[in-house]
C-alpha cells in the first residue's frame, strides 16, 4: 500500500508543474502586463520600454516562468493592481473564508446524502424512495445560481433569518464567542444552498451502491447465517456501500470549487470564488492566475485524497 501511495504522490508533482506551466502561459497570452495597468498613459514609451527591460518583462518566457515559480515558492504571487496590495495578502483572508464555506458545505452534503441515500436504497421503489429520487432529479435540473438567488430572496430578504452578505458582522472582535457565532450565521445560508444542490450526486450514488450491494451473493450468505435484516444492513450492505462514498470525498472537493464561485458571488461572501469573479471582471490578471493555480492544485490534491482513501479502505487495492 505504501508503494501505491508513494507512486501516487510521485505522479502528483508533474501534474502540478504542468498546471503551473499552463496557468503561466495563459497569463502570458493575455493582453497587457504588470506595467500597463500601473503606469500613467502619458509617460514616454521609450522610458516604459527601458523600465520593461529593467523589470525583465522582455525576457524569454522560460526565464520569466522560472522567476514566477521562484516567487511562488517564496509565497510571492505578485501584486494586485486593482487592490494595490500583494496577492498573497489579498488571498489569505479569502482562502480562510472559502475553507470554512467548503467545510460547512461538505458537512451538510453528507448530513443530507447519507440518510436520504440509505432510505432510498434500502426501501427502493417505495413512495419514500420516489420522493427522494424526485428531489434528486429536481436537484440535477435546477441551476445552482437560480436556486441560490431564490434562497437568498426568501430567507435573507423576505424572512430576514440570515444575513444577506459578508462573512461576519462588521465591528465584531475576532476571537470572541459572538464573532464565531456571527461567522457561522453568515456561513449557513450559502453552504446549505450549495449542499442541497450538490448532494444529489452523492444521494444517487449511495442509492445505487446500496441497491447493487443488496443483490450480491454474500448478502444471502449473511442471511443464511441467521443475521437479522438490520444486522445485514449495518454490517454488510452499509459498510460495503459507504466505502466508495468515502473514496468519493476527494472529488467532492473538486466539485465544490465550481459551486463556490457562484454561491460566494450571490451571497456576497468574501471568498476565493468571489475574488476570482471580481478579478476576472476587473482584469486583475495576477490575481486571476493565482486563484486559478490554487483551484487547480486543490483539484489535484482532491483526486490524490480520493485515491489514498480508496487504497486505505479497500483491501483489494491495499494488498498490492
Amino acid at each position: 500500500m505504501w508503494k501505491f501511495i508513494v507512486r501516487r504522490l510521485v505522479i502528483t508533482f508533474p501534474q502540478i508543474i504542468l498546471l503551473s506551466l499552463l496557468v503561466f502561459l495563459m497569463a502570458e497570452m493575455m493582453p497587457g502586463d504588470a506595467l500597463s495597468g500601473l503606469l500613467d498613459p502619458n509617460i514616454d514609451p521609450a522610458a516604459i520600454e527601458e523600465q520593461r527591460i529593467k523589470l525583465g518583462l522582455n525576457d524569454p518566457w522560460h526565464i520569466k516562468y522560472a522567476d514566477w515559480v521562484a516567487g511562488l515558492v517564496q509565497g510571492d504571487l505578485g501584486q494586485s493592481f486593482k487592490f494595490k496590495m500583494p496577492v498573497t495578502e489579498l488571498i489569505e483572508q479569502r482562502l480562510v473564508n472559502s475553507f470554512w464555506l467548503g467545510v460547512a458545505t461538505l458537512i451538510f452534503t453528507y448530513l443530507i446524502a447519507i440518510p436520504l441515500g440509505i432510505t432510498s436504497g434500502r426501501y427502493n421503489d417505495t413512495w419514500a424512495d420516489q420522493m427522494i429520487t424526485g428531489y434528486t432529479y429536481i436537484g440535477f435540473a435546477t441551476p445552482l445560481f437560480i436556486f441560490a438567488l431564490v434562497v437568498l430572496w426568501i430567507f435573507g430578504f423576505q424572512l430576514q433569518w440570515f444575513p444577506t452578505s459578508g462573512s461576519v458582522e462588521p465591528g465584531m472582535v475576532p476571537g470572541t464567542f459572538e464573532y464565531v457565532l456571527s461567522k457561522i450565521q453568515h456561513l449557513l445560508l450559502p453552504s446549505l444552498s450549495l449542499a442541497l444542490i450538490t448532494t444529489v450526486n452523492t444521494v444517487q450514488y449511495l442509492r445505487s451502491e446500496i441497491i447493487d450491494t443488496k443483490q450480491k451473493d454474500f448478502i444471502i450468505t449473511a442471511r443464511a447465517k441467521g443475521a437479522s435484516e438490520s444486522r445485514v444492513y449495518n454490517r454488510h450492505i452499509l459498510r460495503n456501500s459507504l466505502l466508495p462514498i468515502a473514496a468519493f470525498f476527494g472529488f467532492e472537493i473538486t466539485g465544490l470549487i465550481g459551486g463556490t464561485v457562484f454561491v460566494e458571488q450571490i451571497f456576497g461572501y468574501p471568498g476565493m470564488g468571489q475574488l476570482f469573479l471580481e478579478s476576472v471582471v476587473g482584469r486583475d490578471y495576477s490575481v486571476v492566475t493565482s486563484v486559478v493555480l490554487l483551484f487547480g492544485i486543490a483539484s489535484i490534491l482532491g483526486a490524490l485524497i480520493s485515491d489514498i482513501i480508496l487504497s486505505l479502505v479497500d483491501p483489494r487495492i491495499r494488498i498490492k
Partner: peptide, 15 residues
Amino acid sequence: AMIFQDPLTALNPLM
C-alpha cells in the same frame, strides 16, 4: 445452514 455455488461471490470482499 447452506453451502453456496459460487465461492467467489458468496463471501464479503471487504471482511
